[in-house]
Design a protein around this nucleic acid. Structure first.
Lengths: 342, 342
DNA sequence: CTGAAAGCGCTAACAA
DNA sequence: TTGTTAGCGCTTTCAG
């Protein structure tokens, strides 16, 4: 681990000169510069970035806090963040909250202590106050797709128009003829906090004259397995739904598997609609009807917005993207006959 | 951003005392200690971890380099790593190589410059020399599931017994009666480097007397889409295979979709076998027969091994886990009649 | 039990 | 153009 002093000594100059020569920030005699370069090269010198950070006050690192990186949704998010950060010379350290609010708060604290230059947080199970806390501590923070009833009280956020999104779904289902619709709503491991998407959906269904039967409201924890269980449960009701809206695609895929295992055909006997549009959603069978979130674009924007905040520019308006409904083959009018597809 | 000096001043002591009091490392008068605690509390003091790192020489950060976090396989890996690191007080900064070797090398360099305490690298498209380079630079590094023909020349690695794994698959297929088997082999974006799993599979098929027809060897880039394309291609051959082994589940799922779209029934007309056993693989239709890798356990071990290396213990033997074949419904004897399942 | 002093590796003014 | 000096915030001997 050669230090800057080692190369200074080797080159017969002072550390400051080496610093300048290597960074190309100031002006250095061409010959000495080349000599320094050569010495650095020979010694295999690599600047110690933490030392640099201590003096410069920036780490070129951003934090990414997600619920559970195992969900492909967050995977796609993480890639977008990492790639756009990378291009700007930033690295990202990530952490999973697993839906645990207090862990989430600790994580934000820790990231701040590590002097990350900024933080991106994907809401899932993160308390608004924790987010505000980090902001207060002076770390730029961009909450993304905040999806809880309470407002996070932060201006610079990036998200989608949940209201429009679920309205799309509700109207689609009602127009298709569905009257009895079930919900698989995502919730954290411990609490029953209701996300905006599900509550807005419920509200819209009521508006359209077909309120959700509370017996058809099932909460789950954002996994295939819990989606599956919820599906089986819903389908086992005395009066099962003709359609199920799942809070995300992962759970929707679980629901479809549950239907299969209980002999319920999708979409002939059950319509399933998800939310996210994962890459895999068009490859499952039947291909899943879902709400498409432009994840990559959204997160690229979120990251760029964060970078601007870090650079001290003040970014005015929160970004809100418009989701679209992508209709595939997991949806059909209720009671559609089996088409004998072969 | 109160510093340790601020709280020292507030408490009427010196920074050294504050340091000791807060860390509980030395002995401090009980009353002064409490007083210091209170002052720190009031000022909202948080130690600056990069400053600490500079003096202690450790960052409590590990690097994780994967191919593409979007693949649920890496997502599951990343979770396991992050969670076990978290428990030990470490954070993880991750990076995607996207199959780019030179990017991968740069990433390792950068992580080293950032003074991460150690690195975990999931082989996909990473050059052995880059890995060795980082090791040389003194950063403990644990390559996981190294899956390329060439040896990485590093003792402390964690992986699975690929040979056994694919032998399982080959024997399973042959015993089922398949003679004409296709392969969807994963490769990086630019090169055609062959992974061990596919080549070992090919070798075993030859051993069993049914060598793979080169026309049935298709390379793809580890995505659903490329798996799909490969599947269509293979199925369009004059003499299509009766079974396809995909280098991973993601591609296998793509292959199944291709079969569907070309009117080929799985498993009646085509057997598909994957590799990884993703969470989603048992929820797709038909549920995928695949090689189960104990990802979570494996990566937890890898992380713990890394932590030991960091602690200076020298870990003797490389860890190798035994994968198992999990037979689900995407496999059947060739030419199996449609069972008219309803 | 507490303070003084030095140092981690680097950058940034300011002098020379 | 290069060197000197100081300092980022913390920890760690070593004295007192």
């Amino acid at each position: 681990m050669a230090t800057i002093y080692d190369v200074a000594r080797a080159a017969g100059v002072t550390a400051a000169t080496v610093s300048v020569a290597l960074s190309g920030r100031g002006v250095v005699n061409r010959k000495t510069r080349e000599h320094i370069l050569r010495c650095a090269e020979e010694l295999g010198y690599r600047p110690n970035l933490v030392a640099r950070s201590l003096t410069t006050g920036v780490t070129h690192t951003i934090g990414l806090v997600v619920m559970d990186i195992t969900n492909p949704f967050y995977g796609e998010v993480a890639l977008a963040v990492e790639q756009t950060a990378l291009r700007a010379g930033y690295r990202v350290t990530f952490a999973n909250t697993m839906g645990d609010e207090s862990l989430g708060a600790d994580l934000l604290d820790d990231l701040a202590a590590r002097q990350v230059d900024g933080i991106i947080v994907m809401a899932g199970g993160m308390s608004a106050s924790a987010v505000r806390g980090a902001a207060t501590r002076g770390v730029p923070i961009v909450p993304c797709m905040w999806d809880e009833e309470e407002d996070h009280g932060l201006v610079t956020s990036v998200g989608i128009d949940f209201y429009t999104a679920v309205r799309l779904v509700a109207d689609f289902l009602v127009d298709l003829g569905h009257r009895r619709v079930g919900i698989v709503a995502m919730c954290g491991p411990d609490d029953e906090k209701i996300r905006m998407r599900e509550s807005a959906f419920r509200d819209r269904m009521a508006e359209r004259g077909f309120p959700i039967d509370p017996a058809l409201w099932h909460t789950a924890h954002d996994t295939l397995e819990t989606g599956y269980v919820a599906g089986r449960d819903l389908l086992a009701r005395p009066e099962p739904p003709t359609a199920i809206f799942a809070g995300n695609d992962v759970m929707a895929i679980g629901v479809m598997a549950a239907a299969r295992d209980t002999g319920v055909r999708v979409p002939d006997q059950l319509t399933v609609v998800g939310f996210d549009d994962l890459a895999v959603s068009r490859y499952v069978f039947p291909p899943l009807t879902t709400v498409r979130i432009p994840k990559a674009e959204l997160m690229a924007q979120a990251t760029e917005l964060l970078l601007k905040l870090i650079a001290g520019e003040d970014v005015a308006t929160p970004v809100s993207m418009v989701p679209t409904l992508v209709v595939r083959e997991s949806s059909a009018p209720p009671g559609a006959r089996d088409l004998e597809r072969r």
